[in-house]
Amino acid sequence: MASWEPDFWSSIRNRVRLQKDYAQEQAAEYASARLSLQAELASDYFTLRGLDAQADIYARSIRYYEDSLRVTRTRLQDQAASRLDVARAENQLYTTQAHLLDIQAQREVMEHAIAVLVNVAPSSFHIAADSHLNATRLAISPGLPSGLLERRPDIAMAERQMAQANRAIGIARAAFYPHVSFRMDGGFGDNGFNLANLANSMWTYGATVTLPVFEGGLRRAQLQQSWSAYRETRDHYRMTVLTAFRDVEDGLSRTQRLDSENTRLRAAVGAASQTQEITMNLYKGGLAAYLDVLIAQVSTLEARIQQVEVQTRYLQAQVGLVRACGGGWDASLLPAPNRLPSVGPLQYSGLHDARPAGDVPPPRTRGEEPEDNLTGPNLSALQAR
């Protein structure tokens, strides 16, 4: 038996194109999920480094407060200070030690979160502490807004959804026209074993044409439904584009303001540290009260912690800006419609392993560990930075 259906009204072609658009949509969704995980990993990593910097500040402050406590106790023995000064120094020291323990607990929790993102058991994962925060400024291209439509995978995904809805309209329209097909049947029949005799052969062929006459408005309703679905995807595409532009503007605003704020706080830290040293020297010489020393120490610690927190937020804002710009992704990485992986009608080999499709890598071959980690290769790059 053989049959053939001519595609007069592009119904079959639209179905094929719809599936290709769907394949491209899935590739864009894969890129969007990967970008989201990578951005989350980078943000968590900079949070971890910010906690390292805070822990270093608390550790250095604790050493300074221990020296201050020794000085105060010595002055108490010399009857040059009161017991109140010693109690204030002890309170400052013990409170700072408690803050350090809290920061260390936060760091361990964040390290566990990173371990999950890189697909590693938290108990066997560790990142060495590093108190240096490198805030490298990003270079933003002037033509970014115009090229953003090709650099965001979520925009490409929304556009492919709109393309699928457009194909569905063509399929719904084709249902109004006659359905034509050609068919040919053949075979052999005999009561004995002489089946190959040409005289025993049977052959039939013909054409069928079907046309919907009355279906109670079903075809018209399906066409209207396809148009409504198209309008929905069009509005979703527009909202995705506007959201992308907003994300970029938010990222630019955050990075610029936080960079300026970080510069001001660095100057504030320098002034507070200088005040702390001068006040401590005056106290050792008996020219200042310990309350002045305590106020200077608290101000210095708060200024340093605030500066590190702002610098961490600045790095996280840079991550958000990179994510808003697509993270280096481009629409050219989508699988081309004429290069989508396909299987031939008589193909029996190579069916177990998928072919690569655009930016989507194929899974590992049988017997190898599957590649299910989308963030692992990026951790070493972050640590190098």
Rank of each mutant, 00 (worst) to 15 (best):
A28V: 03
A28M: 03
A31C: 06
S32V: 09
A33G: 11
R34Y: 01
R34P: 00
L35W: 01
L35S: 07
Q38W: 02
Q38P: 01
A39F: 05
A39Y: 06
A39T: 09
A39H: 07
A39C: 11
L41K: 05
S43W: 00
D44G: 09
D44V: 09
Y45C: 10
F46I: 00
F46R: 03
T47D: 12
L48C: 09
R49H: 04
G50W: 00
D52Y: 00
A53E: 07
A53D: 08
Q54D: 07
A55W: 03
I57H: 00
Y58T: 14
Y58A: 14
Y58F: 13
R60C: 01
R60S: 12
R60P: 09
I62Q: 06
R63I: 10
Y65S: 11
Y65V: 06
E66Q: 15
S68W: 02
S68P: 12
L69C: 09
L69R: 11
R70D: 12
R70Q: 15
V71P: 01
R73C: 00
Q77N: 13
D78N: 15
A81P: 01
L84E: 09
L84H: 10
D85T: 06
V86W: 04
R88H: 02
A89S: 15
L93C: 07
L93A: 04
T96K: 05
T96V: 08
Q97F: 01
Q97K: 14
A98F: 02
H99Y: 09
H99F: 09
L100Q: 12
L101W: 02
Q104V: 07
A105N: 12
Q106P: 01
Q106E: 11
Q106G: 08
R107C: 06
E108Y: 04
E111W: 03
H112C: 08
A113D: 12
A113I: 00
A113Y: 02
V116L: 14
L117G: 03
L117A: 05
V118N: 05
V118L: 08
N119G: 11
N119T: 13
N119I: 08
P122C: 03
S123R: 12
S124L: 12
F125Y: 12
I127P: 10
A128Q: 13
A128G: 09
A128I: 09
A128H: 07
D130S: 13
L133E: 02
L133C: 00
A135W: 00
T136V: 11
R137V: 06
A139H: 13
I140T: 11
L144K: 02
L144C: 05
L144Q: 02
P145E: 12
P145W: 05
P145A: 11
S146G: 06
G147D: 11
L149D: 10
L149I: 15
L149N: 11
E150R: 15
E150T: 14
R151V: 03
R152D: 14
R152P: 13
D154R: 10
A156G: 07
M157L: 10
M157D: 13
A158Y: 03
M162R: 13
M162Q: 12
A163I: 00
Q164Y: 00
N166Q: 14
N166V: 07
I169Y: 00
G170H: 07
I171N: 02
